[in-house]
């Protein structure tokens, strides 16, 4: 059943984007950090893990961990200017830093093979899994990662740490006056988000088995934003639902193309127009997204 293969593929990609959306949601929805350079984590994670395995022969598990750590460190670096910058200024700076990461991957050909991309990324546990079952195995692997991240992030956000983050988002001034070190909290949040983004990048690289700088253009960040705006911020179910909706919408036009009297270029333009309009409509009329954040009342 080839169509099942397509669905499995689709679900795997949705899973990988869910992780990215969850990471972004953790920054935007919980901490109020407006990151327009989210794709940088994705890029760093993908490049680090695949280069370690392909060029240095490091075991995959170690490569994944290093990739997550490096993305986390990049998150830390990105968080430093939040100390002095207003959130909108910081947002613009993140957009720029996302592009700089891609340009480094593109231009430092001695390390990344530049525009040619990294070839020959191996499949994880290839020898142990029968070839026909591999797509299902990888989907399960991605789902397992999502569950772990989901539990981890939920625990984190329900802890005092998470409540402090939400306090920053809602009332930073108040938070500061209560003597909380908001800078430190933001910094920790960015490290966590970066780590999750790095995991998503690694999963992506080892699934597609080829990465190039073209994977990491700013449009990826905008799609992740569309996911969390549609799905709803401040909870992780929203991020997953958003990833499902946006990814399905994206592929659905491939199938509707034969039934709508429009050329392919127009069809694609229409698709992106609708995503843009969707973002506007949600922010105007349903700012909380499809899944509303459950606000707990603390005494």
């Amino acid at each position: 059943m080839p169509i099942i293969n397509f669905i499995i593929y689709l679900l795997t990609m949705i899973g990988i984007y869910s992780l990215l959306a969850m990471s972004l949601n953790f920054q935007v929805g919980f901490t109020g950090l407006i990151n327009f350079g989210q794709v940088a984590f994705f890029c760093i994670g993908a490049y680090t893990s695949s280069l370690l395995v392909v060029n240095a022969g490091v075991p995959v598990v170690v490569a994944f961990l290093v990739a997550m750590a490096l993305s986390g460190i990049f998150g830390y670096i990105m968080s430093i200017p939040t100390k002095s910058l207003k959130s909108d200024y910081w947002a613009i700076a993140t957009l720029a830093s996302g592009e700089i990461v891609r340009l480094v991957a593109l231009n430092e050909a001695w390390l990344t093979a530049g525009p040619f991309g990294v070839m020959g990324i191996p499949q994880i546990l290839k020898d142990l899994i029968p070839k026909d079952a591999y797509p299902v195995f990888y989907l399960l692997f991605v789902i397992a990662c999502i569950i772990m991240v989901y539990i981890f992030l939920s625990m984190l956000t329900n802890s005092p740490f998470g409540r402090n983050l939400k306090a920053i988002r809602d009332e930073e001034e108040l938070c500061l006056s209560l003597g909380k070190d908001t800078q430190k909290l933001k910094l920790q949040a960015m490290i966590v988000a970066g780590t999750v983004g790095g995991l998503a990048g690694s999963l992506f690289a080892f699934y597609i088995q080829f990465i190039s700088p073209e994977n990491f253009k700013p449009i990826e960040t905008f799609l992740m934003w569309a996911m969390i705006i549609v799905g709803g911020r401040g909870n992780f179910k929203g991020a997953i639902i958003g990833a499902v909706v946006i990814q399905l919408f994206n592929v659905s036009t491939r199938f509707l193309g034969n039934y709508v009297p429009l050329g392919s270029d127009s069809m694609a333009a229409l698709r992106m127009t609708i995503i843009g309009v969707l973002i506007i409509l949600f922010l105007l009329f349903r700012p909380e997204g499809l899944i509303k954040e459950k606000k707990k009342v603390y005494d």
Binding site: Y9, I208, N250
Partner: peptide, 13 residues
């Protein structure tokens, strides 16, 4: 690359 893959998978599957 990602939508390219979507396209190829859709064609094949």
């Amino acid at each position: 690359p990602a939508p390219g893959m979507d396209a190829a998978r859709k064609l094949i599957d």
